[in-house]
């Protein structure tokens, strides 16, 4: 029987290659032609950057079962590394500086992963929290990281790839989309490789994984490095393509929690989950703002909005996790199956 290479059919990517192709045609062909600046700047670019960060964290938390609260720190490392690389090596093309920034973040992740060889669960989460605070401290205290700008604010360089400028909203969207597409492909290859299976084996039962010969320490460190690589590049996109001007406070613990929520809401251990969760997190505030303005008129100021946002988000997370602990990805799967049954 030829069963070996045919892994169990698991829905890593939405509805197979056909749906994915349609999605790419939409994202590359139709959206850039019809979209408005508002769509690119307020929705799609932050969505892509957050989805990528979620994807990275999902490699670590969803697949390998290692909880991290330091995602924003790795985003910051990626963003500030890309900034420094483009500042100090002016000839370096943008793709190269993004890639190198990813490697710098991966190194940071490797260092942050060392405690994972001894710590587990809750204790590991606390040690990643230390990374979060250390990076915030370093960004504020070490001047050259932000080129000695006051309070660590950096401004992103122009986005130019091979002589073409991508500095308008549509161009920044296209750069983000390309980076996210490529890295999603790489992540998909990783999780469907034997190494990806080893990640799940360690998550499901570390001792049993050890007992079948999985190199647990090496695999855990690899999970940290790969995850931080992806999150670092997401941070660079967040800074270069979305915000354009970044301060260290933009990468605080709130951001880490946001990424963690994206992964939990979307679905741990699925690649689609990061995209679903990021979509949810980006669209929800806008929906609430519209809804609030329609219902309450002028009384709905930004302070109220932020408060309502937090309350609604918290309630939704609780409700969703009670209804479906495996997140939106599983909810969608179930809805799809129900539709299929009804059609049949």
């Amino acid at each position: 029987m030829d069963a070996l290479p045919r892994a169990a059919p698991r829905p890593h990517l939405p509805a197979g290659a056909l749906g994915l192709g349609a999605l790419l045609v939409l994202a590359y062909g139709i959206v850039p032609l019809t979209g408005t600046s508002y769509l690119f700047e307020a929705l799609l670019t932050p969505f892509l950057a957050l989805a990528l960060a979620g994807l990275g964290l999902n490699l670590l938390t969803g697949y390998a079962g290692l909880l991290s609260l330091g995602s924003a720190a790795f985003m910051a490392v990626g963003a500030y590394a890309a900034f420094n690389l483009s500042l100090r090596l002016p000839g370096l093309p943008l793709p190269a500086s993004l890639l190198l920034a990813g490697f710098v973040a991966a190194l940071a992740g490797l260092a942050a992963g060392l405690p994972a060889l001894r710590l587990r669960g809750f204790y590991l989460a606390v040690s990643t929290l230390a990374v979060q605070f250390f990076v915030a401290w370093a960004l504020n205290r070490i001047g050259w990281i932000s080129d000695d700008s006051p309070s660590g604010v950096i401004t992103a360089p122009r986005l130019v790839v091979a002589g073409l400028s991508f500095d308008d909203p549509r161009g920044r969207y296209l750069v983000s989309l390309t980076v996210v597409t490529l890295l999603t492909l790489v992540a998909w290859r990783l999780v469907s490789s034997p190494t990806g299976r080893n990640l799940v084996a360690i998550r499901d039962n570390e001792t049993a994984a050890r007992l079948v010969g999985v190199k647990v320490a090496r695999t855990k460190l690899l999970a940290f490095a790969a995850s931080s690589f992806v999150i670092g590049i997401a941070g660079a996109l967040w800074a270069f393509a979305y915000l354009r001007t970044v301060e260290p406070a933009g990468f605080n613990l709130d951001r880490s929690f946001q990424i963690l929520f994206i992964v939990i809401i979307g679905g741990l251990g699925t690649l689609r989950g990061a995209f679903l969760g990021a979509g949810f997190i980006v669209v929800l505030p806008l929906l609430l703002a519209r809804l609030g303005a329609a219902l309450l008129g002028d009384g709905f100021d930004s302070g109220t909005l932020e408060m309502v946002q937090r309350i609604v988000l918290g309630a939704l997370i609780v409700a969703l996790l009670i209804r479906e602990p495996a997140g939106l990805a599983a909810l969608l799967d179930r809805a799809g199956r129900r539709l299929g049954r009804r059609a049949a």
């Binding site: 070996l4 169990a8 034997p194 039962n205 049993a208 007992l211």
Partner: peptide, 28 residues
């Protein structure tokens, strides 16, 4: 020298075949 733990510890999230393959790959 290969062991089987008490309490039948499988990798719950992986299919039976993936569990088995993990044992083969662990050996190399």
């Amino acid at each position: 020298l290969v062991g089987v733990l008490e309490g039948r510890h499988c990798f719950r999230g992986l299919s039976v075949q993936e569990n088995l393959v993990a044992g083969g790959l662990g050996r190399g």
